[in-house]
Design a protein around this nucleic acid. Structure first.
Lengths: 378, 378
DNA sequence: CGTGTGATATGGATCGATCTAAATCCTGGG
DNA sequence: CCCAGGATTTAGATCGATCCATATCACACG
């Protein structure tokens, strides 16, 4: 290879691409193994004059093998840079060491942190995470499920896409692989025979806590702001809100229910709707933090000071909630913890495939900050 | 089972746990398969009186089989709810259909979106993503690498943990599996023989663009705010800043370089340091968006109006950047696109294992908004 | 000296698919 | 009626590990 060809540099649009040739001695002597094949248990056996069975025993730390042979084999394992082929072992043992994690929206920080928790816990238990992101499309969900199931995961953790249907999911999953549903229910009505574990958030209780908090602070005209009626989590949160209002003997005016997409931009846009009717609310329970932060912006634009002239709460306790001006009163759902919990649940299910299905509604915790006016700092 | 035992409800702390017994007919008739084992290719063969080889050919859509037998086999496949065992096939074919994706911090929205892009692209290509999150710990990185490599991924996409070391990583990965490095370089000095692909962000150019933008707007006293000197990306961005200043013939005062942790809280705290010396800067290039948003808060607290009394830029273009008051001028890095690109690169590498290593520095794009004063709206 | 015993080691079948080479079937030409 | 040759099908080995039943060995005991 000529020195002149050492580097090829391309300027493309903005970025750069370097092409660096491979050094001549592509693969130097790899101990003793043939250049390309991975070394297998048989290579080790041959390499130190014992049978494959013995090597296998050593790999699994069996007490049956003599200390000396064990040492000899272990030395050879290191010498040949052996890596265990778990797929082969799993095939023979009819086991699996992976769990599929299928999320409707990995790019959402809430699910990202959930995934992080799942992976953490699974890793500790010696399992590996098979990831699948469906981008909120039930067609992709089908495809992803079918693809992942072929890799034979021991279990599946699924946060369904919106509009995901029971029968389709069950058809793809089959009856063999345990399923844990997270965050959302499946649409359609389930066949009687079907059963799976569920891990949900206590949306209803969360919204009730927030509403009660505002009531305690003296508010009587409280709105429910944001979210769409057809989202199940929004329905649940709204139910918690109405429940608290009813218990406190407060009537809800129709114009106190303002819908908007669960993001900041739309929240800003819809803010005026809150004040269209009379009496105007003095506080709002928001569908989630994004919406609450948007509403705060909208209030500022109307010359109102959130936490002072108007109290509001969020839901999720995203990172920015603590840092807003003012900081946001909200409900912490601890997504990483939920991830660890989901992993634990599916692992338990593997140990007891026949035990009763569990339906867990996970606690949420009210985090009081200045936006609700409780800690108002002028 | 008695009706009285139908449900067990536990109230625990905040949440609830339902235990729902499994219906009596746990597994109804599963077509014809024995209750518990998965159906295999042999079952299908036996079920419709052909050989295993023929079924295998049908599965892979070979044109060699007669239309009639093909139809017969396909019918039986459906009847028995057959699912392909890709692990077994991979073992025989000595192939792999998975790619390992190892991230230093999955909970970070930037990486979450990157992962989302990777998974999307890999899915399209028929690959499955093996996830591993290292939580910024090089020990965990080692463990995760070793665990994932045992599952025989066809390739590895690695965004290294801070302080991750070349030799350790190479020892875990081995020479067989192609490696693509994303976002960061590995520490330590690499052995000559080693080579792998790299996909990095054009940190330097990004910071230069931001700085040039501020200079064009008339600023002469420009600070570089945030980040730590020992982070490689921070060093690169700082280099871009100094380069632009030098080219424009502007001297940098020492007190214009203020370090802080790459988050909002610390940025607020360090804000006053910017104005400790004279002459005070009239603008700042910030290490990233979080820092820039923090600095905006700090400026407000000093009674200054960002984008009006003081110009500033961020880096990353996180979701909140567009929604701040004022919206933040920043550099878009398109993490999802980078993810798709990373997936593409590793897939290409699988097709050409011996082609030259690529070093790609991905473009970043200046997104001008009001915070830099270019679009000042009073 | 034969043999029972505990400690080790191993051959060969096996998991569920694929591959290779060879067997079978079918059809038309000689 | 036989056979070449294309169209189909298949038996059996194989991937890299594990499991089972059996083999081997050293030693002690009657």
């Amino acid at each position: 290879m000529h020195a002149a060809l050492q580097y090829a540099i391309t300027r493309s649009n903005f970025g750069y691409i370097w092409i660096v040739p491979i050094p001549d001695s592509t693969m130097a002597m790899e101990s003793t193994a043939p250049v390309h094949r991975k070394t297998t248990l048989s290579d080790i056996a041959a390499g130190c004059g014992v049978s494959r069975a013995t090597v296998s025993l050593v790999l699994r730390g069996s007490p049956l093998v003599n200390k000396l042979t064990q040492a000899k084999v272990e030395k050879e394992l290191r010498r040949q840079d052996y890596v265990y082929n778990r797929a082969a072992a799993n095939l023979r043992r009819r086991t699996s060491s992976s769990i599929a994690l299928i999320l409707n929206d990995l790019a959402n920080p809430f699910f990202a942190e959930f995934a992080s928790g799942v992976d953490e816990k699974l890793g500790e238990a010696g399992y590996v995470t098979l990831l699948g992101s469906t981008g909120e499309s039930s067609e992709r969900e089908q495809a992803v499920l079918r693809s992942l199931i072929e890799h034979g995961p021991a279990g599946i953790i699924l946060s369904p896409a919106e509009g995901s249907d029971v029968t389709h999911v069950l058809a793809a999953v089959g009856a063999q692989t345990p399923l844990l549903l997270f965050n959302r229910e499946l649409g359609g009505n389930a066949p009687k025979s079907a059963h799976w574990d569920r891990l949900m958030l206590d949306n209803r209780r969360g919204a009730r806590l927030a509403t009660e908090h505002l009531i305690t602070l003296g508010h009587r005209h409280i709105a429910f702001f944001g979210g769409h009626r057809d989202s199940s989590s929004c329905r649940e949160r709204f139910a918690g809100y109405t429940e608290a209002m009813r218990v406190a003997g407060l009537r809800i005016k129709p114009h106190w229910r303002v819908e908007c997409a669960p993001n900041r931009v739309d929240a800003v846009v819809q803010c005026p709707a809150l004040f269209a009717g009379s009496p105007a609310p003095t506080a709002a329970v928001c569908y989630n933090d994004a919406v609450a932060l948007g509403l705060m912006l909208g209030l500022c634009q109307r010359g109102m000071q959130p936490g002072h002239d108007f109290a509001l709460t969020g839901f999720d306790n995203i990172a920015e909630a603590a840092l807003g001006m003012p900081p946001l009163t909200t409900l912490a759902v601890a997504p990483r913890e939920r991830g660890r919990q989901a992993a634990e649940l599916i692992l338990q299910r593997l140990h007891e495939p026949l035990s009763a299905a569990r339906y867990i509604i996970s606690p949420v915790q009210l985090v009081v900050r200045a936006s609700s006016g409780a800690l108002a700092t002028t």
